[in-house]
Amino acid sequence: MKKVIIIGGGQVGAYLANLLIEKKCEVLIVENRPSVLERLYQEFDAKLIIKGDGSDTQILEKAQIFESDTVAVVTGSDEVNLVAATIAKYEYGIERVIARVNNPKNDWLFTIEMGVDKKVNQADLLGHFVFDEML
């Protein structure tokens, strides 16, 4: 069974958590915003939620990062996503690190050298989808 840490519990993180739980993955969500945490506690079992900053090594260790196969960094901040991805890959040797790109201008930063195995650039995906549908 895959063990996944999701850093960022907003709409994307919560949606991803539900998808992974459906597929029988073990999931932990790391979030630090009080209003988002309140919603997460209503939607998920409290044992699946870690309160804290996903770029803090103590929080990552509390989330059992050493036992995780994958880390998905999906916060709304490219800076946080890059820092957390770099830490997950190079401090903890996580096999698969997936990171969300919020600002398309930052896409070039999300590389394997920064700890990102796979990047998801929502603006780029949506832009290409709309363009393809216009043709």
Rank of each mutant, 00 (worst) to 15 (best):
P34R: 13
S35W: 05
L37I: 14
L37Y: 05
L37H: 00
L37P: 07
R39K: 13
L40V: 05
Y41C: 12
Y41D: 07
Q42E: 14
Q42P: 06
Q42Y: 07
F44V: 09
F44S: 07
D45T: 10
A46S: 13
A46C: 03
A46E: 13
L48N: 10
L48C: 07
I49V: 14
I50S: 00
I50A: 08
G52Q: 03
D53C: 07
G54N: 10
S55P: 04
S55M: 06
D56G: 06
D56Q: 04
I59D: 01
L60I: 06
L60D: 11
E61A: 09
K62V: 12
K62F: 04
K62M: 11
A63K: 01
Q64C: 01
I65N: 05
F66S: 10
E67T: 11
D69L: 07
D69N: 15
D69Y: 03
V71F: 01
A72V: 15
T75Y: 05
T75F: 09
T75V: 08
T75W: 01
S77V: 05
D78Q: 10
V80N: 10
N81Q: 02
V83N: 06
A85D: 02
A85V: 00
I87S: 10
I87R: 12
A88Y: 06
A88S: 15
K89A: 15
K89D: 05
K89Q: 06
Y90E: 08
E91V: 13
Y92D: 11
G93W: 08
I94M: 03
E95W: 03
E95L: 08
R96I: 02
I98S: 03
A99N: 01
A99P: 05
A99G: 03
R100A: 04
V101Y: 02
V101I: 13
N102D: 12
N103Y: 12
K105C: 01
N106P: 06
D107A: 15
D107L: 02
D107K: 15
W108T: 09
W108D: 11
L109N: 04
F110M: 02
F110Y: 14
T111S: 14
I112Q: 10
I112W: 01
M114Y: 10
G115L: 05
G115E: 04
D117A: 02
D117M: 05
K118L: 12
K118F: 02
K119I: 03
V120R: 00
Q122E: 11
Q122Y: 11
A123I: 11
D124S: 10
D124T: 10
L125M: 14
F129C: 05
F131N: 12
F131W: 08
D132C: 01
E133F: 11
E133L: 14
M134S: 04
